[in-house]
Design a protein around this nucleic acid. Structure first.
Lengths: 135, 135
DNA sequence: ATTGAGTCTATACTATACTTTAAGGTATAG
DNA sequence: CTATACCTTAAAGTATAGTATAGACTCAAT
């Protein structure tokens, strides 16, 4: 059970074989070897690498950023400071997006409470607000 | 000043001419007429329609949703209830995205505070957490 | 008449993360 | 030996919201 074909790794990790090939093109994961006929063979640590990718994605990192994290992780001579910086930047990104969304939500909620929810769109305050002449 | 060429409308509205043609392909805005040589001519209400689009985008609506809002807006026989429903759904979408981002942020913040920010990546708790065997 | 700016269409490219398809080669069970 | 399950590559398609490019035509001014 040391070497997995792409299909078996796919089953084991819950990532499709196509996605594995895609990750390989993106430089995220490489099979440890190929058979004489060209089949990819992965070792079990491939699963761990995929778990790393999945977790980092869940934390909001893009594949490019994950690629960077993996490079840092693969080389113990790299500094933990770089990882911390990447994490901080990501937290700031997320904060910004949350603030944007909060603003949108406030705007929508204000409109929503003023809309009677019946009658012609001619009298709809939501459309009215979007159509205002000022600004 | 009644009829604007695409370039003039672009300048006036702050949207590029290419974007105006793109919006036309998407069915969001159509020039009121064309010159004999095929030049698009817009009336001044085009600016208002673009302002509507810009405002709706700022509130988080996609171009498809804006297209729907415009269709509702263009026909006074449509019900304001449809607009209100679209708005509610959008508020829920945004809420969901905010919660997702909050979760990501909590996860990242927890990792960030535990990272010393110096030393080898081998001892970095952020990478460690991403690599954990459990789950 | 010519130059330069503006416009036309169609197509391709950008970013992100994949999925799908086509056409073919390989491994294995019966 | 053959069915079929699995694998290979390259290219195209999906969604979103545009931007960029090429080659041709038009308009206004000199």
């Amino acid at each position: 059970m040391r070497d997995l074909t792409i299909g078996n790794l796919a089953k084991q990790s819950g990532v499709s074989a196509e996605t594995l090939r895609y990750y390989e093109r993106r430089g995220l994961i490489t099979p440890s070897q190929r058979t004489a006929s060209g089949y990819r063979l992965y070792q079990t640590d491939a699963s761990q690498r995929l778990r790393f990718i999945r977790r980092a994605q869940a934390l909001g990192f893009s594949l490019d950023e994950i690629s960077e994290l993996l490079s840092l992780s693969d080389d113990p001579n790299q500094s933990a400071a770089a990882v911390k910086q990447l994490t901080r930047t990501k937290i700031q990104d997320i904060d910004l997006r949350i603030r944007d969304l909060e603003r949108m939500k406030q705007g929508l909620a204000a409109l929503e409470t003023h809309c009677p929810g019946h009658g012609s769109t001619r009298d709809c305050p939501i459309l009215g607000a979007l159509n205002r002449d000022d600004d």
